[in-house]
Design a protein around this nucleic acid. Structure first.
Lengths: 95, 95
DNA sequence: ACATCACATAGACAGTCATCTATATGAGGT
DNA sequence: ACCTCATATAGATGACTGTCTATGTGATGT
C-alpha cells in the first residue's frame, strides 16, 4: 500500500462522522438505515459519506433488495493498520 | 484518545505531503530545511503543513537558534496507533 | 399500475484547504 | 548597525468539502 492510498484513507477518516461510522462497522456489517439512526445528518449526507468511505477502499457495499449493507474491507483495513503501525517515533525504547 | 482527536490526526495525515513528512520523521528528528529539500513546495507551504501536524499533536517542534527541529510525539503516535489497531473487520480473529 | 420504501444523484452554498507571493521576525555573523 | 539565513505570518485565490433541499431510481407490496 503506497502513500497515496494511505492518504486517501486518512482523508476519509478525517471526518468524525465517518470515523464513527467505521467504528460502528467494526461490529460487523450494517445497513445504511441502521447507521442513519446514529447521526444527526440527512440521508443524502450519509450517502455521501458512505461513498467517500467506499472510494477509499476501506468499506464494501453489498446490495440486497432495497437495502445497502456496508462492511469494512478486511484486506484494506489490515494493510492500512500495518502502514500506520510501521511509523515509529525514533526513540528505541519508550517510557 | 477520543474520536475528535483521532479525526484531527487523520485529517493531518490526509495530505500526502504531510504523510510523507511523518514517514521521514520516523527516522528521527529533522529540521525544516532538511524536510524542505524533499518536496516541490515553497517554504511557507511547508511551514503551513508543519503547523497542522503540530496542532494535531502528532509532531513536536524544538527551536534551536535559527532552526526548527521537528519530531514525532511518541505518546500521541502510540495512542493513535492503538486506536487504529482497535478497529476490527468483524470477522473473528485472535487477540 | 400505483404507492412506498431505501438509497443515490444533482445542484447549491458557505466554509475550509493547499498553495502561492510578499513581508515580518528573530538569531548569527561581520 | 547591518546583512543574511531559517522560519513564520499575512493575504489572496482557486479548488475542494460537508451539508442541505429537491428529485431520480429501483425494489417491494397492494
Amino acid at each position: 500500500m503506497n502513500t497515496i492510498d494511505v492518504a486517501l484513507i486518512c482523508k476519509a477518516l478525517g471526518d468524525s462522522n465517518r470515523l464513527q461510522i467505521v467504528q460502528m462497522l467494526s461490529d460487523g456489517e450494517k445497513c445504511a438505515c441502521k447507521l442513519q439512526e446514529q447521526f444527526a445528518i440527512t440521508q443524502p449526507t450519509l450517502s455521501h459519506h458512505m461513498r467517500i468511505l467506499c472510494e477509499s477502499g476501506l468499506v464494501n457495499v453489498r446490495k440486497e433488495g432495497k437495502w445497502s449493507h456496508y462492511s469494512l474491507n478486511c484486506e484494506t483495513l489490515v494493510a492500512f493498520q500495518q502502514f500506520i503501525a510501521s511509523v515509529s517515533c525514533g526513540k528505541k525504547k519508550g517510557r
